[in-house]
Design a protein around this nucleic acid. Structure first.
Lengths: 206, 206
DNA sequence: ACAAAAGTGTTCCTGTTACACCCATGT
DNA sequence: ACATGGGTGTAACAGGAACACTTTTGT
């Protein structure tokens, strides 16, 4: 951390989430989320992206404002929290000092104020799942319906019926069936889908 | 305005809404919303309440954070916007310099950044109407179903069927029927209801 | 042949919509 | 008596939930 990251009246903090088999968030080894102090002339969202980039090298992820929290007495006056979503494949993090942690595990060391951010981000995700196309942010450009269903199940913390899920997804008209399939394991290959172009793939990124 | 209201890196801005026959918001004559600079040791929400109190004398309204916007170059670094809701009877504003304006009227003079706040607050209201008990914030402690329906219709910008609306409200189990009625005009008196105690009457006010 | 995930329809139920008339009051 | 908003039930419809078997592949 340098001065730009610790001094200043306004900070941003970012909870980056991804899904492998469970929902995970990016945690710095000191038990904190990536943060940055707002630089002169810098936009809040740019500051949040910079916080993420500085710790992980990651760019161009889905990023959305979560909530603004009071700062602490000796620190910033306000902390603007964001949550970010990205598919695991895009996150080849081999940096020292960062790792993935389980947001539901109260044993993972994490500063109290950052724990609240992670907590509220999880709630926001579960709430938005039904009416906003956030699930796709966890997947590659092309994906199978099984993968998509897994995302819904993990974020929503419930198992879903396969047939009902597929009908619902088709009805939403957000999916385009490709001509390709993915072979993986000793079973029938799965058809690949992608998001319809007209959908805002990075909604809220402005 | 004094120094505490104009100087400082973090400001709050408040869009206060009420309903008479239309949705209205409180506008300062200069074409701005009430704002305040975050004072040392002050919590963000307290700052927003102070902004409202200083211009109107109003206290104890429903207040919820809306979004945090980038500041302008010569001003604050970040503007934390709130929206507030209150019934018209609680707002006996006879202060100079403030008045009620129509949020949908693009002719009312209002600073661009504040116009966006009002706009987004309206959208948030309409969205939350269905799943959060915000409509009651526009009403007195006791109210008729006709009044409640009017609030839903005004915020949701649509007319509703009376019978379906009443059934829905009863099904929500948020209402308690009182033994009193309200007489008003030359027609049958209307039964008065109140919110069930267990409901958070000022949800999000913490 | 078998294990493992992909893929596919129908029935039931619940909640939402549409709709028209009588009631109690003040003037 | 009449004008005004308050108050009530039912039938049609649509969307969500429950449910089991066949298909294709790799080993």
């Amino acid at each position: 951390m340098n001065d730009t990251n610790t001094i200043g009246p306004v900070h941003t903090a970012v909870a980056l989430f991804t899904i492998r088999e469970r929902l995970e968030f990016l945690r710095l080894d000191e038990g904190r989320l990536p943060t940055a102090a707002l630089a002169p002339q810098e936009a809040l969202e740019a500051c949040a992206r910079r916080a993420l980039w500085a710790t992980t090298g990651i760019e161009d992820v889905f990023l959305e404002q979560l909530y603004t929290f009071d700062g602490r007495q000796d620190g910033p006056r306000a902390i603007v929290a964001y949550y970010a979503l990205a598919p695991r494949e895009r996150l080849p993090i081999r940096r020292p000092g960062v790792s993935w942690a389980d947001p539901t595990d109260s044993a993972t060391s994490l500063a109290d104020d950052h724990r609240i951010i992670v907590q509220r981000a999880c709630e926001r995700l579960a709430g938005k799942l039904e009416y906003a196309p956030i699930a796709y942010q966890f997947l590659a450009e092309r994906f199978t319906l099984g993968e998509l269903q897994a995302v819904y199940e993990i974020i929503g913390c419930q198992t879903l019926d396969k047939r009902n899920f597929r009908r619902r997804m088709r009805a939403s008209a957000r999916l385009v069936e490709t001509r390709d399939v993915r072979r993986k394991g000793c079973h029938r290959p799965a058809r690949l889908y992608r998001l319809r172009d007209t959908q805002p793939a990075i909604a809220g990124a402005l």
